[in-house]
């Protein structure tokens, strides 16, 4: 009798321990999460493989894209975020293919895939060590996701435990321009954001 009771107790104990372990252990996404380097606007933030600085975030209701004489207008149910900055590889040639806008409430927005590849956005570019280059990131987000947003950049989304840079932006979400034009240039800087200011 005693022995049966002891077995039942041991079984219950094992169940309790397993249940506790299942619910206290960190999530898979936390175990494999990237190694984050954070910073603010207008300064160079260093990760182990690359560095990034962001100079400017502009918000607009409509986005025009001019590539070699052709112009296309992109409307949105939210707003467009146009982010400019500079990125540099530190030790080896690499690509930065993952860019995200993390809203203040933790919702993720990825780089827009509506704008054609002729505009040199960050993911298509190659970064050479020692040669910093300008980056352009464009996001489409609802208006309430603008204020308190963070830009998150990584080499790829698929590599666990890789570097990731997070830059907290300083946009209030109140200064929304009616429209912005991204013009692809033949010479000089690859693009211009109009109207200039």
């Amino acid at each position: 009798m005693m022995r049966v009771a002891r077995s039942v107790l041991a079984l219950l104990f094992a169940v309790a321990v397993l249940y506790g372990m299942q619910h206290t252990r960190p999530l898979y996404s936390d175990i494999t999460s990237p190694i984050v380097a954070s910073g603010g606007m207008n300064r160079r933030v260093e990760a182990s493989a690359f560095a990034l600085s962001l100079d400017r975030v502009r918000v607009a209701r409509v986005l025009n894209v001019e590539t070699f004489g052709k112009s296309k207008t992109y409307t949105s149910s939210g707003v467009w975020l146009v982010v400019e900055g500079e990125a540099e590889a530190k030790f080896e040639t690499l690509g930065l293919t993952s860019g995200e806008w993390l809203s203040g409430s933790g919702v993720r927005y990825v780089l827009t895939d509506r704008v054609p590849a002729t505009i040199e956005m960050m993911p298509g570019d190659v970064y050479q060590p020692g040669l910093p280059r300008h980056v352009l990131l464009m996001f489409e987000v609802p208006e309430d996701a603008v204020a308190g947003g963070t830009v998150v950049v990584a080499r790829t989304k698929l590599l666990p435990l890789d570097d990731e840079i997070r830059i907290a932006t300083n946009v209030s979400g109140r200064d929304i321009e009616p429209e912005l034009t991204i013009r692809r240039n033949h010479k000089g800087p690859s693009w211009t954001v109009l109207p200039q200011r």
């Binding site: 030790f91 080896e92 040639t93 190659v126 050479q128 060590p129 020692g130």
Partner: peptide, 8 residues
């Protein structure tokens, strides 16, 4: 020595 470039 410290940096490495891939071909363009």
């Amino acid at each position: 020595g410290s940096r490495e470039w891939k071909p363009t």
